[in-house]
Design a binder for these strands. Structure first.
Lengths: 113, 113
DNA sequence: TTTAAATATAAGCCAATGATAATATAATTG
DNA sequence: CAATTATATTATCATTGGCTTATATTTAAA
């Protein structure tokens, strides 16, 4: 069915064309990002961030990796080529370190005692 | 400004990711289409079709050519490559002839009298 | 110049979507 | 286990966007 493809493309394109989610993907081009980093970088509440990430995850655009209470997100491999092309055209945004304590911070703090 | 690019991409992607407009673009891959053809092909009212085409036109995705009361639309040349890539991945839909009388029909009808 | 056909615009309605506040869950630490 | 931190979920609200009806515009035909 032709409409199957068309509907799927419509769904996926609409999903990633949201300004916030597109910006998230621009950050993810440079590698994994922790949820707390997004919360730090965007002027949005944590639930809003969480909901955007859920949409990206459910659609298979990103994958998660849990590490303690932290959750890291990364781009899925093998995205459709028209999606990859969009990602390539995105400016690649660079994340600064965020306020939340990373596991590494904690380990380091621990070792300093 | 990075956000300028990002916002522009978000705007354009959101614009073409609508299911109806994406289907219109799939038809336009095969060449010009008359408004009346779209009206014929879609189960939508004429104003709805017209509004979709206006959005595509205003955003520079399609161009129009007026011929009498008929208006033909075609894909704009030199679209951003990430948009072209999307178009390539679209199924190319084939239009049947529509009910509206074309100029050619009228000329032919005239000559038969 | 009246009529008809093709298209565009305007106004109002409704559904989808993104945002927030409040709450829940889960893992870690003390 | 009680408290804290990070994240997720739920409920609700406001905005956006697409659809329809009604109307306007434009061009060609009679």
């Amino acid at each position: 069915m032709n409409n199957k493809n068309l509907d799927a493309m419509s769904f996926l394109l609409k999903l990633i064309s949201d300004k916030t989610r597109l910006r998230m993907l621009a950050y993810l081009k440079n590698g994994e990002m922790c949820v707390c980093e997004f919360v730090d970088l965007f002027t949005l509440t944590q639930p809003a961030i969480s909901q955007h990430l859920k949409k990206l995850r459910t659609a298979g655009v990103v994958q998660e990796r849990k590490q303690g209470t932290w959750v890291y997100y990364r781009l899925s491999p093998d995205l459709p080529n028209y999606i990859s092309q969009i990602l390539e055209n995105l400016p690649s945004l660079k994340a600064k370190s965020c306020d939340c304590q990373t596991r590494e911070d904690l380990i380091q703090l621990e070792s300093l005692k």
